[in-house]
């Protein structure tokens, strides 16, 4: 298994921190991509952060009321080693399918 850390992103233009309002996932929980992770408040607004990826939540940082700086760890996911990259999906290994049949007279063999 591999660990992937997701730091608090810049949620606006030049914001430097955010305050945790409520965690919407718990450690040990399996989440899908875009699942709401946490509600945080910045100096501009309260926003819900969607999960950047699928995985098991290994660690979350900060309890309600805590301030987290942009770039500091927010959440760590555990993902299987063979999980695809951030872009794209793992191709399925399928039994080969065909419609074309070869029909040739080998005149020299």
């Amino acid at each position: 298994m591999a660990e992937i850390s997701f730091p608090l992103p810049d949620l606006g233009e030049g914001l430097i921190e955010a305050t945790v309002l409520e965690w919407l996932v718990a450690e040990g929980e399996q989440v899908e991509r875009n699942h709401p992770l946490v509600e945080v408040e910045t100096t501009k607004s309260a926003v819900e952060l969607p999960s950047p990826q699928a995985g098991k939540v290994l660690r979350i940082f900060g309890t309600p009321g805590d301030t987290i700086k942009v770039g500091d760890p927010l959440i760590v996911f555990e993902v299987p080693d063979d999980t695809a990259g951030i872009v794209g999906t793992v191709p399925k290994e399928e039994a080969p399918k065909r419609r074309v049949r070869l029909n040739a007279v080998l005149d020299e063999d």
Partner: peptide
């Protein structure tokens, strides 16, 4: 895909 490659083989065979 598999069929296009098979067609290619068929063309050189025939």
């Amino acid at each position: 895909n598999i069929d296009r490659i098979l067609f290619g083989i068929q063309r050189v065979l025939e």
